[in-house]
Design a protein around this nucleic acid. Structure first.
Length: 424
RNA sequence: GGAGGGAUGGGUGAGUGGCUGAAACCAGCAGUUUGCUAAACUGCCGUACGCGCAAGUGUACCGCGGGUUCGAAUCCCGCUUCCUCCA
């Protein structure tokens, strides 16, 4: 959520940012917010003033009673009746005004960073880096969903039976390979200075709100309705929420956490073309890195995170490219997002496997995540990135590393984790 | 599932209707003293919003939400959560 103070101080900054996002009616939206804010402040001023008078009266009555001046006390008490009804009235008006402002603010996405390109859709994203050579595949190369079947390492049919579409069962070397990748990614993050976290896989509504899944996006999450909990769509939610309502001591900064969790996504409405095999799942595993940073350091941290993710892909020897998402393609809460895409040779297309973002103060304003500077509290910046999401990495590994004899050679860095170097 | 007891500032913990935004102690910060360390002493030491150029000042907040009252940390109701005991 944007800070109302920032909008009040610099409405044009907000309007320009919304334009970059192709947000409908930016001028009108900001004008409406400022109006609601003005209204709220007027009501608060009046309410505070009346409460101050009422408080004084109450004190006065107290001392009169103590002094035994019953009659005077009684008279003063009668005078409070009018104040009391006005107080109630203002209280409810103020609450309405606050809610109206909140409802409007919550609908406004984050303002993009200056470097974010203008654009409407994924077609307008900017390719900022390319790494690796596209491998030459043998004649009989297969897409990963065929390979999976042939090698019998993932069973979609079994998943269909016990749960439903999009919940694959990993078997034998497939399961082992999953575990190996998770360990590898976690170890790499720990080596880079991240602290490993195992968070809960269900979160409450407050957590969903703070990181931006709620309101309005509950349709994307599975909900355990009996207990009003949500299955996490990403470890970002529980790990970032560790710092909800926290004022961090300056010497604790920066905070760098990493966690592996399954991720649960309903993917409502997004099933269509290109969702075969591992391309889109309802449950998948991901290792997520999360940082809490002082504002002046957050962009340097973002660069480090991008470099970390790139390093993982290089160690896996997967060709990739990095996109800077355009205003129209960015997530609601993000100020800037870099997407990593691996080249999937057999499908001959790019597959998104990581998304690294700086949320600046957008999440921390909802989290109430602050630190103290010169005696004043100030919002921190939050960042996160996938490092990495497993399914599409697996898809790319299988497709890119298939040999003429139909076997698949695993990258060397994984062999100590898998105990085998080949799938056959 | 049942019964009982708790939830107060960074921590411990006092406070059962007005003098309490909250004692005291600990931790922390600044200073005095000091050959160094330690100790002692003095001061400061919650958050949010409003008003104000600022100094400052008003309001709200004692788990959360309601209620009673001129006035609530304190009384009443509901909820959450922790502990103990029972099943």
């Amino acid at each position: 959520m944007l800070q109302i103070g920032s909008i009040r101080e610099n409405p044009q900054w907000a309007i320009d940012g919304l334009k970059k996002r192709n947000f409908p009616l930016p001028d009108e939206t900001i004008a409406r917010v400022l109006d609601l804010d003005r209204n709220r402040r007027e009501l608060q001023a009046e309410s505070d003033n009346i409460l101050a008078v009422a408080n004084n009266k109450a004190k006065e009555i107290g001392s009169l009673m103590k002094a035994g001046e019953k009659a005077a006390a009684e008279k003063a008490r009668e005078e409070t009746a009018a104040l009391k009804s006005r107080t109630k009235e203002l209280e409810s008006l103020l609450k309405d005004a606050e809610n109206a402002l909140f409802d409007e603010l919550v609908k406004i996405p984050n303002i993009p960073h200056a470097s974010v390109p203008f654009g409407k859709s994924a077609d307008d994203n900017e390719v900022v880096a390319n790494w690796g050579e596209v491998p030459a595949l043998p004649e009989n190369a297969l897409p990963h969903w065929e390979l999976i079947k042939k090698l019998d390492i993932i069973d979609f049919e079994l998943g269909n039976k016990i749960t439903g579409a999009g919940f694959p069962v990993y078997k034998g070397k497939g399961a082992r390979l999953q575990r190996a990748m998770i360990s590898f990614f976690l170890d790499q993050a720990v080596l880079a200075g991240y602290t490993e976290i195992q968070p809960p896989l269900l979160v409450n509504a407050d957590s969903g709100f703070a990181t931006g899944q709620l309101p309005d996006k509950e349709g994307q999450m599975y909900e355990a309705t009996a207990d009003s909990l949500f299955l996490i769509p990403t470890a970002e939610v529980p790990i970032t929420n560790l710092y909800r309502d926290v004022i961090v001591a300056e010497d604790q900064l920066p905070i760098r956490n990493v966690g592996h969790t399954p991720c649960f996504r309903r993917e409502a409405g997004s099933w269509g073309a290109h969702v075969r095999g591992l391309n889109r799942l309802h449950q998948f595993d991901k290792v997520e890195i999360v940082q809490v940073q002082q504002p002046e350091n957050s962009y340097e941290a973002l660069d480090q995170m991008v470099a970390h993710v790139g390093g993982l892909l290089q160690k896996l020897q997967l060709p990739y490219r990095i996109l800077r998402l355009c205003g129209g393609d960015m997530g609601f809460t993000s100020a800037i997002t870099y997407d990593f895409e691996v080249w999937s040779s057999a499908q001959e297309r790019w597959l998104e496997c990581s998304s690294v973002s700086n949320f600046e103060t957008y999440q921390s304003n909802r989290l109430k995540l602050r630190y103290r500077v010169d005696g004043k509290t100030q919002l921190l910046h939050t960042l996160n990135g996938s490092a990495l999401a497993l399914p599409r990495i697996l898809a790319a590994l299988l497709e890119n590393n298939q040999l003429a004899d139909g076997t698949i050679r695993l990258p060397e860095v994984l062999v100590p984790y898998t105990g085998f170097d080949r799938l056959s």
